[in-house]
Nucleic acid binder design. Structure first.
Length: 792
RNA sequence: GGGCCCAUGAUCUAGUGGCUAUGAUGUCACCCUUACAAGGUGAAUGUCCCCGGUUCGAGUCCGGGUGGGCCCACCA
């Protein structure tokens, strides 16, 4: 019997400890049940905090894990941390106040690893455990861990072997601040104000033409001039040469359809490289290469007297000089959007370096086909995936000039540039730790100092989580995984690269389902960002709200769409839990001394409510199966609150409190119905509010069902119901009940006031045996036959 | 510029061609009814963003606007 008042705080801690101690969520590899593998997104532990959006999303698919476990699956739910790459480097540099360039890579890596361990512990205890998450912590992996490194490096070696990974010297997107190459996916829009400069170029015959450019600092790198072939003004220029001001190199004037006649003067200079279009034209028209910047973004000797200046310094000086020499004839304000590094917003540059690439462009069609074999929830996000693929312009650059990451396992001969690769058995390794001696040519093998793009590892989370290389036999049973839950903003990276890798390695999809989670906005509907100062942190939230209250709110969030964070809506959860507690308390009070057997005959009104329960079970199950937790939860809650509490509990009070009036069998029918409905409801709510349901379940049914936890019990099934016209008769019953309530409210009477009820003959016949219950719940001291009326 | 999503009482929301448009929060009135006043019973609040079209019938389908959000591209 539940004899206490609801106290969420007490319950939480108790069951979290119990679950951990009893290994409730352990993945059983010998189980005969079907596997359900969730490809969990590894959170960045190094950020130090998780905001409410993360907490919501992580809880959202944790609810699915609980549902599937109860549904009879062997759920593989591996916790993980992404501790690889830039965010960790930044965190370590900031908190320890050190500069990574002043210590060795090995030493810096050690510091990063230590920092990770500390933060991850904090996360595990302060966030995931507190949220009541049902991970099997024995399955934990980190993206810098041995298995992850081995997977990433093995993938690299195998892709080289099969010709899908290559090293080449190409113009590469480059961040001059972080001094590393970037992938297309790491470039984000940066808006900036600049000037469009109208600069005169002389032709060989002395005529002047005017070129508009926002980047005069690139004049030294100018290798050509373009006009639109349709442009009448400049048709005669094509084929001539122009002389670049200051630097005096002769460059050809050519035509290309991509030139916008309306922009500037309609004459464009092309430099290697100012932007994407430059690269395109440079390739298309076979122009010479003139790289004038180094890796830090400073000008080199090709820029003559401007050598050593940053791009911005050079720009200023060059504009000054152009003005002075009256070559710059006009300046206009220009608002432009340029690509910037996703971490530091520094506008990206293009330089030519040797980098490793994985082929993507040549597999576009196949990748779209793979995407269509996967179920997308909601389906329209597949379009975004396909659009991204269609617009891809580059293969995937996977090498990064960084310290903390998975090392690229390769050595180069410093004389003949021969590439030396390790054997797979040697992995994982850091080539800096291994001396590979001399090359045949007499040169020495030098380790590659670079590391992989962090997505090189993350793209293989389904393989890492299920220990692809460690236990290949078991891996086969877990791949493809069942579900990838993720957020929609990384479709172009995480989802895309994961599908790519699975295709290249296995010709297989990585998971059957991908479901896009909910995005939490601030109360005004804007995205939450640390930098905007409007983020609400998960641990602060949990200091103010009970976990099940928070989880109830999560249960209402619709996958794939945004939800604003509003505290009032969290309050609804507190009301709900209190209601659930009290309804359970009432029910269990009346189940004392009841033997839980099904009586020979159930009252018709009881059958009607059991039939309603069946419908709700069906609806909830169908919705859970398509990750529609919000509709599932809504249906169950409506049944619980309005059908079960408001109607059914009121209806059976008479039979429960006055066993003599209707007989023992009739009371037992009510008890059986109460038992079935409460037991089912607790289980239907268990994924959403695991602590509260666990507490009630243990008081009520755990012993009887011989289960250690409600989360190890099975999902409710529809019970067998047989009765005539239950739906019509039950609806009529509830309809009359509502009319009586309204009549009493209109007449300002208490609901317990007695009435005389007059019902037409047809309805009386239809109600049949339900009439006794109707009489009791409406407090009718008398029921007459005639036109419907209610009298006091 | 391209793509995707969205627009329903004050607020959030259901609605996948068919009676009178769903539910929740808030507001108001009434009811202490032996689980719960953190409750119950009711009431008021809507030109379903606008304009056309398809249809016997449109909140729902189609076309075109308007306004928001997201993703992508981009001007030298």
């Amino acid at each position: 019997m539940l004899d206490k008042n609801y106290n969420a705080g007490e319950i939480e801690k108790k069951w979290q400890d119990y679950w951990e101690k009893e290994h409730i969520y352990k993945f059983d590899k010998n189980s005969k049940k079907e596997n359900y593998v969730i490809d969990v997104p590894p959170p960045y532990a190094s950020a130090g905090h998780l905001h409410v959006g993360h907490a919501l999303h992580y809880t959202q698919f944790e609810i699915i894990a609980r549902y599937r476990r109860m549904k009879g699956f062997n759920v593989h739910f591996a916790p993980c941390f992404d501790d690889n790459g830039l965010p960790t480097e930044k965190y370590v540099e900031e908190t320890l106040k050190i500069n990574k360039n002043t210590i060795s890579r090995q030493e810096f890596r050690k510091l990063c690893l230590k920092a990770n361990e500390e933060v991850e512990d904090l996360y595990r205890n302060r966030v995931f455990k507190r949220l009541g998450h049902s991970y099997d912590w024995d399955l934990l992996y980190t993206t810098i861990g041995k298995e992850a490194q081995k997977v990433a490096q093995t993938s690299f070696l195998r892709l080289i072997k099969q010709g899908d990974c290559y090293r080449t010297e190409e113009p590469t997107i480059w961040c001059t601040y972080h001094q590393t190459a970037l992938a297309q996916a790491e470039v984000e829009d940066v808006k900036r104000k600049t000037k469009l400069n109208y600069i005169n170029f002389k032709l060989e015959n002395g005529i002047k033409i005017n070129v508009a450019t926002s980047r005069p600092e690139f004049l030294a790198a100018c290798v050509g001039i373009f006009v639109n072939p349709e442009d009448e003004r400049y048709k005669n220029l094509v084929g001539m040469n122009a002389i670049v001001p200051i630097f005096n190199q002769k460059v050809p004037i050519m035509k290309d359809e991509k030139v916008d006649k309306e922009f500037g003067t309609g004459i464009v200079m092309i430099c290697t490289f100012g932007d994407n279009t430059d690269i395109e034209w440079w390739k298309k028209h076979n122009l010479p290469l003139k790289i004038i910047i180094d890796k830090t973004g400073k000008l080199n000797e090709l820029a003559g007297e401007y050598k050593g200046l940053t791009l911005n310094e050079a720009k200023e000086k060059i504009i000054e000089r152009l003005k002075h020499e009256k070559i710059l004839i006009n300046q206009e304000d220009l608002e432009q959007t340029v690509g910037g590094c996703w971490r530091c917003n520094t506008p990206v540059e293009f330089i030519v370096t040797k980098q490793w690439f994985i082929k993507t462009i040549s597999y576009k069609d196949e990748l779209i086909k793979q995407g269509r074999k996967i179920n997308w929830y909601p389906d329209f996000f597949r379009v975004r995936y396909e659009d991204w693929i269609k617009n891809l312009g580059w293969d995937w650059c996977i090498s990064r000039q960084r310290h903390f990451g998975v090392p690229i396992p390769v050595w180069y001969c410093d004389k003949c540039e021969k590439i030396l690769l390790p054997n797979e058995q040697e992995l994982p390794l850091d080539p800096l730790d291994v001396d590979k001696g001399k090359c045949k040519c007499g040169g020495t093998f030098k380790a590659d100092p670079d590391v992989f793009d962090t997505w090189m590892t993350s793209s293989m989370t389904p393989q890492i989580a299920t220990r692809w290389l460690e236990s290949p036999k078991e891996f086969k049973k877990k791949f493809p995984a069942s579900l990838r839950p993720q957020s929609q903003d990384i479709i172009r990276t995480w989802a895309f690269y994961t599908i790519l890798k699975s295709y290249l390695h296995f010709k297989e999809i990585p998971w059957k389902d991908i479901s896009l989670g909910t995005f939490v906005l601030d109360p005004k509907g804007r995205g939450m960002h640390k930098s905007k100062g409007n983020a609400i942190w998960a641990d602060e939230l949990l200091d103010r709200f009970d976990v099940d209250t928070f989880r109830y709110w999560v249960g209402k969030a619709k996958w794939g769409s945004d939800i604003p964070y509003k505290e009032e809506e969290l309050m609804a959860g507190q009301k709900f839990l209190n209601k659930l507690w009290n309804a359970s308390k009432f029910t269990l009070m009346h189940l004392e001394n009841y033997d839980y057997s099904r009586p020979e005959k159930l009252e018709d009104i009881d059958l009607y409510f059991l039939e309603k329960l069946n419908k709700v079970i069906r609806e909830a199950t169908e919705n859970y199966d398509i990750y529609n937790t919000s509709d599932a939860n809504k249906a169950v809650e409506h049944f619980f609150w309005h059908d079960f509490c408001d109607d059914y509990l009121e209806i059976v009070k008479d039979r429960l409190y006055n066993p003599d009036s209707r007989g023992a069998e009739s009371r037992k029918s009510a008890q059986y119905t109460l038992y079935i409905i409460l037991d089912s409801l607790l289980k239907l709510f268990a994924p959403i509010v695991p602590h509260t349901t666990e507490e009630i379940y243990h008081v009520a049914f755990a012993k009887k069902e011989n289960r250690k936890s409600i989360h190890l019990s099975s999902w409710p099934e529809e019970s067998y119901i047989e009765g005539e016209m239950l739906e019509e008769r039950g609806s009529l019953f509830v309809d009359i009940l509502n009319k009586v309530r309204k009549y009493k409210a209109d007449n300002k009477k208490s609901l317990k006031d007695n009435i005389i009820l007059t019902i037409d003959g047809k309805s009386l016949d239809l109600l049949g045996s339900m009439l006794e219950d109707l009489k009791a719940v409406t407090k009718s001291k008398e029921v007459r036959k005639g036109d419907f009326s209610i009298d006091f």
